[in-house]
Computed example of a mutant assay.
Amino acid sequence: MIAGGGFAYASYRNSLKEARSDQNLPDKSDITFNGEKAEDLNDVNILFIGSDSRGDDQGRSDSLMIAHYDSKSKQPKLVSLMRDMYVDIPGHDKDKINAAYSYGGPELLRKTISENFGIGIEYFVIVDFDSFPKIIDTLLPDGVQIDAEKDMSEYIEASIKKGPQKMDGETLLQYARFRHDAESDFGRVRRQQQVLNAVAEQGVKVTNITKLPSVLGKVEGYTVTNLPSSLLLSAGTDFVLGKTKPIETLTLPIEGSWENGYYEHAGSVLEIDTAKNKTELNKFLED
């Protein structure tokens, strides 16, 4: 048993080291994040940040999600936050929510979510556009089966046709980022949820307990995160062993709680009913 545990740990560490040498994300030690535990100790809230940073420019967060996991009921949930929501950013008045990442990194983004929606977030994960395809190709080297909603070719590097198909990591990234249609970010967020559901469902099918430490080490290495390895392994084991329930999803702002707006300093924004969205989010996570 001890020998098996040692082999698993070595496999995890080797994969982690290999992946970290293959990415250009900031070092975790350079990031401030004063995480808050959820009120229910069985719950874990993780802030997922898809960064569009280039070089030394931190940039704005291109994608924002809160992953929620109830370790008792084994219920995973995923909340997508529309990046154009016009909210109060501590120390910066009102602006688009994704501007918080540019102003103050993950910590200011955490504070912004806490102030506007009353959610405590303990951990963060940052993934950039260079790392995402590598994560996908690590989890699912034979590709991800996706039923593409429409033909996509303009404004993206890939050429995607409507219908069922397998996508590699780079093509999947282009599909998830596409927003050059009438739905704009609303369609893009829906496709991001479709992609993550597919990756979670199909990744579990091709990963077994023996391979799990190596896969998790590789995935963790392609991100910047303060997630403890023990939590990552525990939740990953639940998924691989089929203990978890299907992922439930929510998108903020909810329907009927927003309207389009414009401000010179922010551009086009979504004016939201903050109280209504706060209530809906907390209800979703508590149910």
Rank of each mutant, 00 (worst) to 15 (best):
residue 2 I to T: 07
residue 5 G to I: 03
residue 6 G to C: 03
residue 7 F to H: 15
residue 14 N to D: 15
residue 15 S to Q: 13
residue 19 A to H: 02
residue 23 Q to L: 09
residue 23 Q to P: 11
residue 25 L to N: 13
residue 28 K to S: 15
residue 28 K to R: 07
residue 36 E to I: 07
residue 37 K to N: 14
residue 37 K to T: 14
residue 40 D to E: 08
residue 40 D to H: 07
residue 49 I to H: 10
residue 50 G to T: 14
residue 51 S to I: 07
residue 54 R to M: 00
residue 57 D to L: 09
residue 58 Q to P: 08
residue 72 K to A: 15
residue 81 L to Q: 08
residue 92 H to I: 08
residue 95 D to R: 14
residue 98 N to R: 01
residue 99 A to N: 01
residue 102 S to H: 04
residue 103 Y to A: 13
residue 108 L to H: 04
residue 113 I to A: 13
residue 119 I to R: 10
residue 121 I to N: 07
residue 122 E to P: 05
residue 139 L to M: 14
residue 141 P to T: 08
residue 147 D to T: 12
residue 153 S to G: 05
residue 155 Y to H: 15
residue 157 E to R: 09
residue 159 S to V: 13
residue 165 Q to S: 13
residue 167 M to E: 07
residue 175 Y to I: 04
residue 177 R to N: 05
residue 178 F to S: 14
residue 182 A to F: 09
residue 185 D to G: 11
residue 192 Q to M: 05
residue 194 Q to C: 15
residue 195 V to I: 03
residue 195 V to F: 00
residue 203 G to H: 01
residue 204 V to F: 13
residue 205 K to L: 02
residue 209 I to R: 15
residue 209 I to L: 12
residue 209 I to Y: 09
residue 213 P to T: 00
residue 213 P to F: 00
residue 215 V to L: 10
residue 219 V to P: 04
residue 220 E to M: 08
residue 226 N to W: 01
residue 226 N to M: 06
residue 227 L to M: 06
residue 231 L to Q: 12
residue 233 L to R: 01
residue 234 S to Y: 02
residue 236 G to P: 01
residue 237 T to D: 03
residue 237 T to W: 05
residue 242 G to Q: 12
residue 243 K to M: 06
residue 243 K to Y: 10
residue 243 K to W: 07
residue 243 K to V: 06
residue 244 T to G: 09
residue 244 T to Q: 04
residue 244 T to H: 02
residue 244 T to S: 13
residue 245 K to D: 11
residue 248 E to R: 09
residue 250 L to N: 10
residue 250 L to M: 15
residue 251 T to F: 05
residue 251 T to H: 06
residue 254 I to D: 05
residue 257 S to C: 02
residue 257 S to I: 03
residue 259 E to R: 11
residue 263 Y to L: 04
residue 269 V to S: 11
residue 269 V to L: 11
residue 277 N to C: 12
residue 277 N to W: 10
residue 282 N to M: 12
